[in-house]
Design a protein around this nucleic acid. Structure first.
Length: 984
DNA sequence: GTCCGACCGTA
DNA sequence: TTACGGTCGGACG
């Protein structure tokens, strides 16, 4: 770079936000992808590059670069942790545009510059000074006052939206000081958007006046005593240090260690086809035409580019200090290339809004026919290559594996299907065997590509960052593929998309979604493999039948995705999906894959003990009952207790049977009856034996010698996970007998289990959402929350409080979370309903905010049909307006509970997503194994335990930040031990 | 064989 | 009074 050259530096990140707010919203016609800021950006670049030479006020650039913020974690955070801490997450429809704007920059053949740890402003400052030193002119395309300190006779700013140059006189006119004093001015005034503190009471006018008088900030601070106005003088003296810190924050770094030098910014000619392909994909028709004309390209001959929405740390805004690293989803393909069955997309009918797109897609999907006979079977390498090429070009594929077992840790792949666009799908048979296994073991069927070859060929596709893989229940596919050495990514999951959109509106299984949205019943798995004793594994199914079934699944998945994905934007739920669901897929998959070690001997010994104890009690029961009945049959037991023996207090279940619940039997036992006590004890022992000590060993995987649970991501209405086969979220803990089960969950030799659990997370969430001052204060002070409640309610001092008083307050606190009723509380506390009702009234008197919160939540649910967590996750209650009072009341209680339970669930999900990067960052080898709603279990080497616990605690306690700044602190207890009982 | 209710383990 | 999943008995086919 030399004298006479002219460097243009575009503040890309600044532009994005400004354009987003200044320009009218715009969405891509075919799928509703928000592109307003992208459009403004492209038009601006076009103008700068094409029209600069015609404008007298600007020279033609010889060098050009677009600069972006990389992430919110910069050196300024080290100086001042609160820097930019008050920034909220970027708007929903801006998020996908961060990545798109970077791709636009590249499509314009311009350098796209960003650097971890630095803001765009620092890079701009560094490049501007370098160019200036080389004698070149610089134009900074931005109107941000933070950059005005850079203006010199050689460095000009240009506000592209107002088409206005900003030179030294313009800065003086606007701020009252020349550019070189802007730093001191900003240090004094501070900046509320970036959370730069400054000096209270000093605005730009005062600051300029003071700088005029004293010359610079240091002189001012040194001679502050001379200031006449008392308040101003006090503030300047008191906040001198704050001003100095502020100065550090606003001073742009002109010596950023850059990776790309200014020499590399030399302006290159446009790549016409590349630019047109991008603009076409964005559906910017006017600009496409102009770009095609100017570059001599025939627009109609150019295919729209495959434009993936890539991971951009900035896209997470200030939200993620620890970037997830996962790619954001590819956008839906333009309808022109993806209309089902070759039908013309209904452009004329599609409104330019996400909602319009959803409507069009829904109608389209219902009209489309699914033709199972059209699917292909891939039997040789050449055919497979054709499909792989097509998939690569398409950029989006739906994907499904057929396997021998529902357990991804045990299963073998039988075949694999993929769909590249609606109606176009194929099946790759791999391990089908001849049906009759009796004769000579039923070998592999002919004309199947060898397994190794299939995976060798598919691996590049399945791991290609530019090809989005869609599945229904992707965690299963991920696990299966991982066993074959494939790191499946990037991912989308139609089950999870449906879950985010419609939690509470019924099942998210593919069959029901297909029926609901496509009006089609796909072939049932059972129809192929049969059921029960006569069922076979999928490898015995004929390849013809398997093709119809498997390819249909892929086809349906793709069609569901096209339909459901745009709804995430339309309904404002993209960030729930992107932050809480999609990144959790590989996290949970790895947890399931790791499993946990369970000691068979301990369980076996416990089982023997339980059997003995139960047998002893059985003898007593038969004696007391006077006959040998099935103790495990509530029906028979009820008849004995309330029929034959005529005990009092019997009540009936809804089917007319005598109720024999533990609570009821306990009450009878308390009145001195012997038999009910025995039954309760017997039930406890046999429950522990059958559900835990006897069942768990059967789940030890013979290959890994560990137990691998399965987490359902879309099973609950509130956002919680559920665990099954085995359920490791209900391992006993309340009784000493039950806790022994936990001693069987152990760490490998030389390792420890770490258990870290949130303390009172749901009550803390309640304190936050309902804004209850006493609760917030109590959590801030770290005092016993139930004792505080009791003290408030009953006027008892916390000190020496009777345990019964605290117990009742605790039950009420839980009751509140559950959407309390007098009936339920009375039951829980075994007190009269009137008394329970009085408690509730007292509670609402003492904490009126709770009552308000409950009423507001009910009203919201009635109006919208759903409620929301603090992160925007929705739980639907379609029957909240039921005319049946009992039914309606049930829905209301659930609706009150869901935001509380769900917000807590969201918080731990966020912690889980961030945990692995945080541990890696700290060079720790701890593995996250289990989640139990408010608890995470890890396994790690003995010598790393001490270093690991603080990292875990930090991630968990800060998991809500910065998307939500809770008004109460989160507290995590963590302990390490060789087994789960001692760690908990 | 499959389904449902009762019961009970967890948060 | 919220949210789950597993086991059992018993009724149904």
């Amino acid at each position: 770079m030399k004298k006479g050259d002219h460097l243009f530096l575009v503040d890309g990140s600044g532009y994005i936000f400004r354009a987003y707010h200044a320009l009218p919203p715009l969405t891509r016609k075919s799928d509703g992808l928000p592109v307003g800021a992208v459009s403004g950006f492209c038009n601006m670049l076009w103008k700068l590059l094409r029209e600069a030479r015609d404008t007298s006020v600007r020279d033609t650039p010889t060098h050009f670069a677009v600069i972006f913020d990389y992430s919110s974690h910069t050196f300024r955070k080290e100086i001042y942790p609160e820097y930019k801490a008050n920034r909220s997450a970027p708007p929903e429809d801006l998020i996908p545009q961060f990545g798109l704007i970077r791709q636009a920059t590249k499509a314009f053949n311009l350098p796209c510059i960003e650097k971890d740890g630095y803001e765009a402003d620092d890079l701009i400052a560094t490049y501007a000074r370098q160019a200036e030193a080389a004698g070149a002119e610089v134009t900074i395309i931005s109107s941000d006052k933070d950059l005005m300190q850079l203006v010199t006779p050689m460095v000009t700013m240009y506000d592209s939206m107002k088409d206005k140059q900003i030179r030294i006189p313009d800065v003086i006119e606007k701020w009252g000081v020349p550019p070189e004093k802007m730093i001191d001015l900003q240090a004094m005034t501070g900046d509320s958007t970036d959370n730069v503190p400054g000096i209270p009471g000093i605005g730009p006018k005062t600051a300029a006046q003071l700088l005029e008088e004293f010359g610079d900030l240091d002189t001012l601070l040194a001679r502050a005593g001379e200031i006449k106005q008392q308040k101003r003088r006090e503030n300047i003296i008191q906040y001198a240090e704050q001003a100095r810190i502020s100065r550090q924050l606003v001073t742009l770094k002109t010596d950023t260690p850059v990776d790309v030098g200014i020499e590399d910014f030399s302006l290159e000619p446009q790549n016409g086809p590349k630019l047109v392909a991008f603009l076409k994909a964005m559906e910017f028709n006017a600009l496409t035409r102009r770009a095609a004309e100017a570059t001599g390209v025939e627009a109609s001959e150019i295919e729209p580019a495959n434009v993936p929405i890539q991971a951009v740390a900035e896209a997470h805004g200030p939200d993620l200090d620890i970037a997830s690293g996962d790619d954001l989803p590819n956008p839906p393909k333009p309808a022109a290339s993806a209309a089902p069955n070759g039908a013309k997309p209904a452009f004329g009918n599609v409104e330019g809004t996400p909602a319009g797109l959803v409507k069009a897609r829904t109608d389209q999907a219902l009209a489309a026919k699914i033709d199972r006979s059209s699917y292909a079977t891939i039997r040789d390498v050449a055919a497979l290559q054709v499909w792989i090429d097509e998939a690569m070009a398409s950029g989006v594929i739906a994907f499904d594996t057929e396997t021998t077992s529902a357990d991804p840790m045990q299963t073998e792949v039988v075949g694999l299907s993929l769909a590249t666009r609606p109606g176009r799908a194929a099946y790759i048979p791999i391990n089908h065997v001849s049906g009759d296994g009796d004769l000579l073991g039923g070998g592999l069927v002919e004309h199947q590509i060898p397994e190794r070859e299939v995976f060798r060929m598919l691996k590049p596709l399945l791991e290609d960052a530019s090809v989005l893989k869609i599945a229904h229940s992707m965690k299963y596919e991920w696990l299966v593929m991982h066993r074959y050495g494939i790191d499946l990514h990037p991912l989308d999951d139609t089950m999870l998309i449906s879950y985010v959109l419609d939690a509470g509106e019924g099942s998210h299984s593919m069959d029901s979604l297909c029926d609901r949205w496509l009006g089609h019943k796909p072939l049932a798995h059972k129809e192929l493999i049969g059921s029960g004793k006569s069922s076979v594994t999928f490898d015995k199914v004929s390849i013809e039948r398997a093709t119809e079934y498997a390819a249909e699944d892929a086809d349906v998945t793709l069609q569901l995705w096209r339909l459901l994905k745009p709804r995430l934007v339309a309904d404002g739920l993209m960030s729930v999906y992107e932050r809480l669901e999609r990144p959790l897929i590989p996290v949970l998959a790895r947890m399931e894959e790791r499993g946990i070690s369970v000691d068979r001997q301990i369980l076996s010994r416990l089982s023997g003990d339980l059997a003995q104890s139960a047998a002893a009690i059985e003898e007593d029961i038969y004696r007391l009952a006077g006959e040998k009945i099935n103790i495990g049959s509530p029906k028979q037991m009820g008849d004995i207790l309330f029929g034959k023996m005529g005990l009092p207090g019997g009540s009936k279940t809804k089917t007319g049977q005598w109720s024999t619940s533990a609570q009821l039997l306990e009450d009878l036992a308390a009145e001195g009856h012997e038999l009910p006590r025995k039954i309760v004890d017997w039930r406890q022992l046999t429950k522990l034996k059958s559900t835990y000590t006897d069942a768990l060993p059967g789940y030890i995987n013979p290959r890994t010698k560990r137990v691998h649970t399965s987490y359902a991501m879309a099973a609950t209405s509130t956002g919680r996970l559920s665990s099954s086969e085995p359920n490791l979220q209900n391992i006993p803990v309340r009784t000493s007998e039950g806790r022994k089960i936990r001693t069987a969950f152990i760490a490998e030799p030389g390792n420890k289990l770490i258990s870290a659990d949130y303390s009172q997370i749901e009550l803390r969430v309640l304190a936050h959402v309902a804004e209850i001052p006493q609760l917030t204060q109590a959590f801030a002070d770290g005092i016993d929350i139930h004792a505080m409640t009791a003290s408030e309610m009953f006027g008892v001092p916390v000190k020496d409080m009777p345990s019964e008083v605290r117990r009742r307050a605790k039950a009420i606190n839980f009751g509140i979370i559950y959407g309390i009723s007098a009936f339920g509380l009375a039951n829980q506390l075994s007190i009269p309903r009137e008394e329970a009702g009085q408690y509730i009234r007292t509670y609402f008197d003492r904490f009126p905010g709770i009552k308000d919160y409950m009423e507001a939540t009910k009203a919201f649910a009635r109006q919208h049909g759903y409620v929301e967590t603090i992160f925007g996750r929705r739980a639907h209650y379609p029957e909240i307006r039921s005319s049946n009072p009992t039914h309606r009341a049930f829905n209301e209680r659930a609706a009150i509970n869901a935001p509380i339970q769900g917000s807590a669930a969201d918080i731990i999900r966020r912690a889980m997503v961030r945990m692995e990067p945080a541990l890696n960052e700290a060079k720790l080898s701890a593995r996250m194994l289990l989640q139990v709603h408010d608890e995470l279990i890890f396994e790690t080497a003995d010598e790393e335990v001490e270093a690991t616990i603080p990292v875990i605690r930090h991630v968990m306690e800060n998991a809500a930040m910065p998307a939500v700044s809770l008004s109460v602190p989160l507290h995590v207890d963590a302990r390490a031990a060789h087994n789960w009982d001692e760690a908990h």
